[in-house]
Computed example of a mutant assay.
Amino acid sequence: MPRRPLVLAAASAALAGLALAGTGLAPSSAAPAPAPAKPVVLAQGLVTPLSLAVSGDGTRYVAQNFAGSLLRQQGKGKPEVVFQAKKRGQEVGAVSVRRGDVRFAVSGRNRAVLMGIGDSGKAVQLADLRAHELAKNPDGRVTYGFRFASKQCLAKVPEGIPGRYTGEAFSHPYATAQVAGGRTYVADAGGNAILTVPRPGVVRTVAVIPPTAVKITQAFAEANQMPQCVVGKSYWFESVPTDVEVGPDGALYVTSLPGGPEDGSLGANGAVYRVDPATRSVKKVVSGLVSPTGLAVSANRTIFVAELFRGQVSRALPGQKTAKPFARTALPADVEIAGGVLYATDQALDEENGGRLVRIKR
């Protein structure tokens, strides 16, 4: 089966073409973009700021993913480059910070590695995530696509749309989170799994995030030239975990994009999962999201989610299973909480004006 890259890897395409996660499916309709809010702007003119981290002292780190650079901003100062990928086309993202230790990922052609910056200020490689994916392929036994369609029906599915397949060995680290002892958790959007790096050179799988089953509608089938035999059947989309955060209960909270239409034309299929790193149990805790690409969890377990193509940051209070709009803003990509302050990156795919780092009033 052909590789299915994240939709976000095609930022240079028009937004209409960014509606899917590489399955080849087109949306049946486009939802109107909500009016942007007026948050406090801390930096602007950024290039694809898809990943954000904020330290306890308020220092902000922003990854300009497709520019291959990592920025640091202190106070009201101008963001400065603290890392630049050496090779053109390499992506820098998945940034997190804990007590001065910065973690991020560099990925590209035949490469997906976890990097770290400590007191020395020099970036060093900590783990080879792609090597782990090639060796273990955590979702290799998971079946995606039309699980229960006949071979005759699958033969009618248009070329470019995977009819039925199992998880391939493909790594795209998209987010990291750190805990005491130097352990780093990684949301691998390509591998559909949460990984852990307990120490340099060691990578283990914590959990595979389950696929999302979505029924194909008549309208969607017609828009994508799909055969009548798939109408009413479920297509199992890849989970595509886009963020991971450590909650106050010690559990991991993970956003699932998932693969497929990200504009909501097949429903609001994005979700937040709770992963117990000890038992490796996975439970859906928030559903009904559209293109969730960033996540923050407060001290009382309030969940904030950046819904990229829905144009809003949403909030789910403790115990709530659905999130409600919290702040309207164009193309929010990531969201973080530090010192009781909510930060976000928005206008993340705006090629004309550039992206922004903003503070949102809670």
Rank of each mutant, 00 (worst) to 15 (best):
R356H: 12
A31L: 09
A187C: 09
P292A: 07
P158F: 08
F170C: 01
T212P: 13
T48A: 13
A219P: 15
L50F: 13
V246D: 04
E133W: 04
V197M: 07
L20I: 06
V275Y: 02
V62T: 10
E91P: 10
R183T: 05
Y144A: 03
L195N: 02
V41M: 14
P5K: 04
R164Q: 15
I117T: 06
G270F: 06
A175S: 13
V206G: 06
N137D: 12
P34G: 15
T293Y: 01
A37F: 01
L114E: 03
G340W: 11
P162D: 09
K215C: 06
Y61E: 04
A21F: 11
A306F: 09
T293I: 05
L331H: 02
E262S: 15
T255G: 07
V286S: 03
P248Y: 13
A207K: 05
V231T: 13
L15T: 07
L308G: 04
Y61S: 02
R141A: 08
F170G: 01
D139V: 12
L6G: 01
P200Q: 10
G93T: 15
E133S: 12
Y235V: 06
V254K: 02
L129I: 04
A193M: 14
S314Q: 05
R72Q: 09
D188A: 04
Y144D: 02
G24L: 03
L129C: 03
P158V: 11
S51H: 11
A63N: 10
C229E: 07
V142G: 01
P162N: 07
P210E: 13
D243A: 05
T293Q: 06
G201S: 10
L154C: 03
E159L: 12
P292I: 11
Y273S: 00
T143R: 12
R328I: 07
G118D: 10
E351T: 14
V285G: 00
K76Y: 00
P211Y: 05
G270V: 15
G163V: 11
Y185W: 11
V231S: 09
P36A: 15
E262Y: 00
F66K: 08
L134H: 14
A31W: 05
A131K: 13
D139W: 04
L342D: 05
N192W: 01
N300F: 00
A67P: 02
